[in-house]
């Protein structure tokens, strides 16, 4: 009775909000800074990673939001789709994979059409403030759903540089995440560090990553994700000094 924790989480169940940078100027740019990584191989890594999270616990939820150049939108919600049964026999993940890729393609086409209407003038950032705001609204809905809800985290997979004009909005989102005790993890795949995401992870108590080698992104995400998703601790070696990071309080 003495202490009154403000949030209750159902143990071991995660809600991972993944914000995917789909900015065509980053992925298709002539001065490709991504090294060997193409958008499609990036997606392969991400989908394997998302599947590994759902595989670990059937109750884990994954939501994917696209961070575009002209718009942002929800791409995938594991909770509303038909039950995802990952068929380990043929090694495919039909439901997640096909549904998500289809919506993602539609989104990218729509997003690109918007830039034909107003052609970009120098700015190549993606709308991080938009996708962060959407993710936070979604998490509030999960909080409202009852006293027991999954552990929410936001994971930003960001390639484009920061858009200075979004500074105020991004900071507003970071502070709101901090108040709701939602950690923002970030994995930067662009050439430069992202000052926005460094702030976001620092203030909300999340993890900031900038992998050196991108061709092993899936392994990297999976290994790092024992810090991102509490459950993932079980795939580590027992001698691992890093305890699964369960406490999300900053």
């Amino acid at each position: 009775m003495a202490s009154a924790p403000s949030k209750q989480y159902s143990d071991d169940v995660s809600l991972l909000m993944v914000l995917l940078d789909t900015n065509p100027f980053f992925w298709g740019g002539t001065n490709t800074t991504t090294g060997v990584l193409s958008f499609s191989s990036f997606l392969t890594h991400v989908i394997s990673f998302l599947n590994s999270i759902i595989l670990l616990n059937q109750l884990n939820q994954v939501v994917v939001i696209a961070t575009g150049f002209n718009s942002c939108d929800y791409i995938y919600e594991s909770s509303t789709s038909e039950a995802i049964i990952v068929n380990s026999d043929n090694g495919q993940m039909p439901a997640l994979c096909s549904k998500m890729l289809q919506k993602l393609e539609e989104f990218v086409i729509r997003d690109e059409q918007l830039s034909k209407e107003n052609s970009p003038t120098g700015i190549v950032s993606s709308l991080l403030s938009g996708s962060l705001s959407l993710a936070l609204c979604y998490i509030q809905k999960v909080f409202r759903s009852g006293p027991l809800h999954p552990h929410p985290r936001i994971l930003c997979l960001q390639g484009s540089p920061d858009g200075p004009e979004q500074y105020v909005a991004v900071m507003n989102a970071i502070f709101s995440a901090q108040r709701s005790m939602v950690p923002i993890d970030s994995c930067v795949i662009g050439a430069q560090h992202s000052a926005f995401l460094q702030q976001a992870s620092y203030i909300t108590g999340g993890v900031y990553l900038k992998p050196q080698q991108l061709d092993g992104l899936f392994q990297y995400l999976t290994i790092q994700s024992r810090r991102l998703v509490p459950d993932m601790g079980m795939i580590c070696t027992p001698t691992d000094p890093h305890k699964p990071n369960c406490a999300t309080y900053p």
């Binding site: 150049f69 002209n70 718009s71 942002c72 939108d73 918007l114 830039s115 209407e117 107003n118 709308l127 403030s129 938009g130 996708s131 705001s133 959407l134 936070l136 609204c137 509030q140 809905k141 409202r144 004009e165 979004q166 909005a169 507003n172 989102a173 709101s176 108040r179 709701s180």
Partner: peptide, 24 residues
């Protein structure tokens, strides 16, 4: 519910933030 959250805590309109031409 989002209306309340947006005005009391988030202080961003997700719609406006998700549209490039609504800037600055």
């Amino acid at each position: 519910d989002c209306d309340i959250y947006i005005h009391e805590s988030l202080h961003n309109c997700p719609g406006c933030e998700s549209l490039r031409h609504s800037k600055p």
